[in-house]
């Protein structure tokens, strides 16, 4: 499982957070709270292995993620606040490329179906350029319907989604957790769980009432 201890990160010459630690087991969801600039995104990217922490360790199945980059990457889906879509490719093409990057070969039909389930019927074959922000987000999130990785790290996944899409994403998260997956996310929206446990982690030192 994912174990983090004593994590510290500096950006520029500034210490963003220090001594962050938690454990995440199968079926658990971790919420990351914090005001703007408290280092939520940095922490998520550190957990993915994109940023090297200045101190502390991140263990996956008891082994440092630095020693098993490729194995860890195979178990991980990271969706950042950037959609990682190519404007000139269609939704289906984008989805197939992003799954291939994660080591899954996805047939055209399967990608097409995933996009339809995400509520993009009729838009599968359009360049993502012409889609709205919310629709682009849906294309990116459609990966969660196909990818079989256990650990999902999601940076503000609900941004730009409408009510229906948010609800659908919640149900995807619930299903993933119920099946023994793990989720770490930052969001302003609460996810209701049918099973599993919710953990919370607060970054930053501001008092609750500060703005």
């Amino acid at each position: 499982m994912l174990e983090v201890a004593g994590l510290q990160c500096e950006r520029g010459d500034r210490c963003l957070f220090s001594d962050v630690g938690f454990r995440l087991q199968a079926g658990e969801l971790l919420y990351l709270h914090g005001h703007n600039g408290s280092g939520k995104t940095t922490l998520l990217r550190t957990l993915c292995g994109l940023i090297e922490p200045t101190a502390g360790k991140i263990l996956w199945q008891g082994k440092s993620i630095r020693k098993q980059r490729e194995e860890y990457a195979a178990e991980l889906v990271y969706i950042g606040h950037k959609n990682a879509l190519k404007d000139d490719l269609t939704g289906v093409e984008n989805l197939r490329v992003s799954c291939a990057l994660d080591g899954f070969k996805v047939s055209r039909q399967k990608a097409w179906n995933a996009l339809e389930r995400m509520g993009l019927k009729g838009h599968e074959d359009l360049p993502t350029q012409v889609l709205s922000q919310g629709q682009k987000r849906r294309v990116t999130l459609a990966r969660l319907l196909i990818d079989k990785s256990r650990l999902w790290i999601l940076d503000e996944p609900f941004t730009a989604l409408d009510v229906n899409a948010s609800q659908f994403l919640q149900s995807i998260l619930q299903k993933h957790l119920a099946a023994g997956g793990m989720v770490i996310l930052t969001t302003h929206q609460e996810v209701e769980l049918t099973s599993g446990e919710i953990k919370r982690l607060r970054l930053g030192w501001k008092k609750h009432n500060d703005v």
């Binding site: 990457a73 990682a84 994660d102």
Partner: peptide, 14 residues
């Protein structure tokens, strides 16, 4: 710029 590079670096391939 569009975030694809991050996804490439997180690929389980070299």
């Amino acid at each position: 710029v569009d975030g694809s590079l991050e996804q490439m670096l997180l690929s389980p391939q070299p």
